[in-house]
Design a binder for these strands. Structure first.
Lengths: 133, 133
DNA sequence: TATAATAACAGTAATCATTACTGATTTTTT
DNA sequence: AAAAAATCAGTAATGATTACTGTTATTATA
């Protein structure tokens, strides 16, 4: 099934490109709705999945959140989730600090490890400040 | 709200203690149902959450699965998820290999990191063998 | 040991994110 | 320009989980 151009999909991709906060399908829907008042939430979901399938965006399913987040940045990197405001923030780690993580895990395990999922939880800077007031 | 004894909760806890495969609420329900034919799925969920809240069991929400898994083993340890059969298997890691992981992540981040979630994905031994046939 | 207080129950309805369906509309190809 | 096919908007369905309600089991009190 070849991918045909659509204005809605282009708008979704363009919006995602402009954000660094890993928006949800719902918030993408609300934003794109300003340009396309008739767009349907189902259309947003369908296109997000299509784009993720094509490797053009990343879909993150953090168990701690329960709601999927989407990311224009497809290069492998880690995330921090604020337990207070549910913000998802990029977290830079030493490049090779965890490049050996799968190899290391494989040593004590008799299956095939293909990848890992790692994210951090706590309180973001904003919430820490707000709490200190 | 003090916790009052209940035969259903005792059965749920006892069943969980006997398993190492991190069962779902649904499968716990089906098993406990053999002893308590009238038990309700809602009762299973309510008690599992209560036990998790009390720190007597662990609730794991792996984004890769979408369904919660429950664990009698509350000591911190890591898991492997088979993308083929969805099995959740304990994965032993060198004790101190990742004890510094939160500290290391904190270095490049200006929020407060309290914990992390790490799990591995791939293909388990059984599925590898089945595939080789 | 009766009884009063209340947590827990079974059964069922509601929630919420996400996916599937359908007839109409765009986009692309011929 | 017209045919073929992907995409759409709108809506219904799904599936895991939670909330509600009148009844029952457990615990505390007299």
């Amino acid at each position: 099934m070849t991918m045909k151009y659509s204005r809605q999909r282009a708008a979704i991709l363009s919006y995602l490109q402009s954000r660094k906060d890993h928006p949800t399908a719902e918030s993408i829907y609300l934003s794109v709705k300003e340009e396309f008042p008739n767009i349907s939430l189902g259309t947003v979901y369908r296109n997000l999945n299509q784009l993720a399938e094509a490797g053009m965006i990343a879909k993150h399913s953090f168990g701690a959140l329960g709601i999927d987040r989407f990311d224009y940045n497809t290069s492998p990197h880690y995330h921090f989730i604020c337990n207070c405001c549910n913000a998802v923030i990029d977290l830079p780690l030493e490049n090779d600090a965890f490049s050996v993580i799968d190899v290391q895990a494989s040593e004590g395990f008799d299956g095939l490890i293909r990848e890992h999922c790692l994210y951090f939880c706590g309180m973001c800077k904003n919430c820490l400040n707000r709490q200190a007031e």
